[in-house]
Design a protein around this nucleic acid. Structure first.
Lengths: 292, 292
DNA sequence: TGTTAGTCATAGATATGGTCTATATCTCCT
DNA sequence: AGGAGATATAGACCATATCTATGACTAACA
């Protein structure tokens, strides 16, 4: 049986209101249209569904049975449509973001707070991982949006640049002697260096910069979180390579100071990645606007 | 939002098969039709539902949410359609018959048995009552079919005549002296008469017959069931007025004998009543055919 | 690296059939 | 009897669902 489901909508309203005329009003149709639709439905399924009275219509035994199914079905469709409106209006839905812990904590946090206050119906899912992991999450469809350090070269991704961050070397009081100087790379490498683990974008960038000048930068200590980089530097275990904006507090209070180099370290940008040629959810679209 | 529900059917199949081409086959449409339908649905609800890949389509986050509702909805419609087919094929449904106990027992029983064996999916509901009760059950829609004695004069009812029954007076051995005679009404009224309760059609018929000849027939005993009529007569409590066909066994075995009158008692027919101008269920239609 | 075979998307022509207006029929109520 | 409701019917119309033909893209493979 290959019925036009539109007929069930008419049936539902006719049964619900007990009147073809009322159903027509509810559906913005004319009474003859409804009459015709009901007749057609009855013919197609081969069962009489309504008694036609002088004051309206009422369901036959079979009509009641049909209605018990169709009513549920129509309610579900109505709920579905309401849900879709909610999703579009950002009253509902979820936003899955991938990125590094440090970017979440030091960069995204205020945006996430604002967004959550403004759209409390949207569930936030934060998935941390390295840049390649975040990219693969994106490609697998496990996240809607990736937040990583630039540059990103991947033709499947659409990247929009966000703020610029400046990385730098910092140390604690133990190395106070280095304050105010501009060190050369060789000089710096005399000291114990603390770097983020190998697979990070920041680590790759500084390693490449040293290589460009013919040096191989090998850390004495390798850690897996920005917090540890900061903590180790503060305690005098060595010189940490960190993002300046992420240690703003420590620099201001003096527990860390910046060590200047005689070469310029290029700034790096934060990139917001989504899949190219893939539709983006309303929530993700709005969040990118907010961040940007 | 006033959507064409037909679009949800297309959406369902596209999501289910993960391919617009496959959905088109399932729906006996062409691929461009499906493509167009999906696009239209997306535009109307303002949400992108599918990722278009080179090997088919897959649901977006929002699409998955919509699908969770629509899937249930479509399943219900499918169940409804199957149920309607079952009703039409008499694999399912119910048949509600109103009538007197005696007609059920002595007249309808074999038909009911046959019908039940042939259509075991149809539930039978037997509602006993007097003729006016049965008629009001019909008008209230509580039964599909009424089985009563003719004649029935009610313009709202459509009556088809069934078999002819012959009522008669019977007595037991105690009144053996009356065997073989043809009594006059006066003679009969000398004996104790046992009649069915006042509101029955049979009682009215015999009362009217006596009135027509200027007699008032008043029973000495009035009972509420045909079984009691028979039992009382057998035990010699009086002369019962019963339907000959219902005491066939007793007449044959000799526990009762018929008392002939010198006037002819007109036979009465059984009528099958349904509401005029009201659709009749498939089950009721079939049952009437079987009985007739 | 071109070829092929599978996706889905688009454009434009077509015709189905849903919808309308006008009117009839019926029932109930005054 | 007449009016005010209800649904049913007939026929015209046009919106739009659907089709054909084609394009664009991707993946797999020779």
């Amino acid at each position: 049986m290959t019925n036009n489901y539109e007929l069930y909508k008419v049936f539902y309203w006719a049964a619900k209101t007990g009147s073809l005329t009322q159903a027509a009003k509810a559906l913005y149709l004319t009474q003859p249209s409804v009459s015709h639709a009901i007749k057609q439905l009855e013919e197609r399924i081969g069962v009489t569904l309504f008694y036609r009275n002088s004051k309206g219509v009422s369901l036959t035994q079979e009509g009641k049975i049909l209605f018990s199914y169709i009513e549920q079905s129509q309610i579900l469709i109505t709920l579905a449509e309401e849900k879709m409106v909610a999703l579009k209006n950002l009253d509902s839905g979820e936003l899955r973001i991938g990125g590094s812990d440090s970017l979440f904590k030091h960069y995204l946090l205020p945006f996430l707070e604002d967004f959550h206050v403004k759209y409390p119906g949207i569930k936030l899912h934060l998935n941390h991982g390295t840049t390649p992991e975040v990219i693969s999450y994106l490609k697998e469809g496990r996240i809607d949006l990736g937040v990583v350090r630039m540059p990103i070269f991947d033709s499947q991704l659409e990247v929009t640049e966000s703020i610029e961050l400046q990385d730098c070397f910092v140390a604690g009081e133990r190395y106070a002697e280095l304050k105010g100087q501009a060190l050369s790379m060789e000089q710096l490498m005399e000291y114990p260096v603390i770097l983020f683990s190998r697979n990070s974008r920041v680590r790759m960038a500084i390693t490449e910069l040293f290589e460009k000048y013919g040096h191989e930068l090998k850390p004495d200590i390798e850690v897996g979180s920005v917090d540890l980089l900061i903590e180790f530097a503060k305690r005098g275990l060595g010189i940490s390579y960190v993002t300046r904006e992420f240690v703003a507090k420590e620099l201001k209070e003096g527990s860390l100071f910046e060590i200047e180099l005689d070469v310029e370290i290029p700034p790096s940008k934060v990139g917001l990645m989504v899949m190219r040629n893939m539709p983006i959810s309303a929530a993700a679209t709005r969040f990118i606007e907010v961040v940007h």
